[in-house]
């Protein structure tokens, strides 16, 4: 199985962003890296100039690279950004079907976890259109993953990170600061791994990241790796986080190579997990928040 680093969903300043991808290129034992802005088009100008530099550095390090589309495209500016993606000379990861509308027929592309690929009809259609790789939506139950892994297109499964649960036109970060999205003043930059949203009883439940809602718990596929491998899953997707990410990549590489077991991954990764706790319910057919470890 391969490891893919998914797009960073959070808003980091340009220096942090650059350092993250430099370290990734130099030190992370992963095959593929998807980068670019997934969540909010307003963030892009702050680090856009870094993207081509990171692409070159990652390629020079022997990693396959793809550029993500935005997850929700409504504004004219966002449509233009999406259309221009295909001109960058880098494979596009479609995370909203709007991006696919711009991919010329026959050109290769990949499909990210925010596109609804629930069944073999959809997966087959996308493969016919040129999809070279598909990361399945995190909520897919194990039975569906097993069916889709046999269709013939390499499929990835969510391996690590707070789960992307929803996307909205409304910015919750701005709302928590009594601001509208147009006047957000980029407050999402204060929470480099998302802002915790707890229940009234103090249960850790969700996290907000601008217009995106994530799980509070950090999903980990460590205990499902064997089953996923047997099912024919081609890779695991690891989501960037602000601290300790290269270590996470190394732990999963060691797990895939059989050098360590899931219990050791748990023990070493828990201090690095955003939110400090794990979930893997979607991978076992339970509610997503459940944890089998």
């Amino acid at each position: 199985m391969e490891l893919t680093v998914g797009p960073n969903p959070f808003f980091w300043d340009a220096a942090s962003w650059r350092d993250f991808y430099s370290r990734l290129a130099d030190e992370a034992p992963v095959e593929r890296v998807v980068l670019g802005e997934l969540v909010c088009s307003k963030r892009l100008p702050f680090y856009q100039a870094e993207i081509p530099v990171a692409v070159e550095r990652l390629r020079a390090a022997g990693k396959a690279v793809a550029l993500t589309s935005l997850a929700l495209v409504t504004l004219k500016r966002e449509r233009n950004l999406t259309a221009e993606l295909v001109d960058a000379g880098v494979e596009v990861e479609v995370n909203d079907l709007t991006a696919l509308a711009h991919v010329p027929p026959g050109a290769a592309f990949s499909v990210g976890p925010l596109v609804n690929v629930y069944n073999e009809g959809t997966l087959g259609w996308l493969a016919g259109r040129g999809a070279a790789r598909v990361c399945l939506p995190p909520e897919l139950p194990p039975g569906s993953v097993e069916v889709l892994a046999k269709v013939g297109v390499p499929v990835e499964v969510w391996g690590w990170g707070r789960l992307p649960l929803a996307i909205s036109a409304r910015c919750y970060h701005a709302r928590l600061h009594d601001r509208a999205k147009d006047n957000c003043q980029f407050v999402c930059d204060r929470d480099p791994d998302g802002r915790a949203v707890d229940t009234l009883d103090g249960q850790r439940f969700l996290a907000v990241n601008g217009v995106q809602t994530l799980s509070a718990a950090c999903a980990s596929a460590a205990h499902s790796v064997e089953r996923l491998r047997e099912a024919g899953v081609a890779g695991l997707r690891l989501q960037p986080q602000s601290e300790g990410f290269v270590e996470i990549c190394k732990l999963f590489r060691a797990l895939l190579e059989g050098r360590i077991g899931p219990a050791e991954v748990d023990a070493k990764a828990r201090p690095l997990a955003p939110g400090g706790r794990f979930c893997d319910g979607f991978l076992t057919g339970a509610p997503g928040v459940a944890w089998s470890g």
Binding site: A71, L165, A166, A286, G288
Partner: peptide, 18 residues
């Protein structure tokens, strides 16, 4: 949330709109 793109319910209960 954008409809059809929300897994909040399945995260908490295992049952989802999609």
């Amino acid at each position: 949330m954008a409809e059809g793109r929300c897994s909040l319910s399945s995260y908490a209960t295992g049952l989802s709109p999609n």
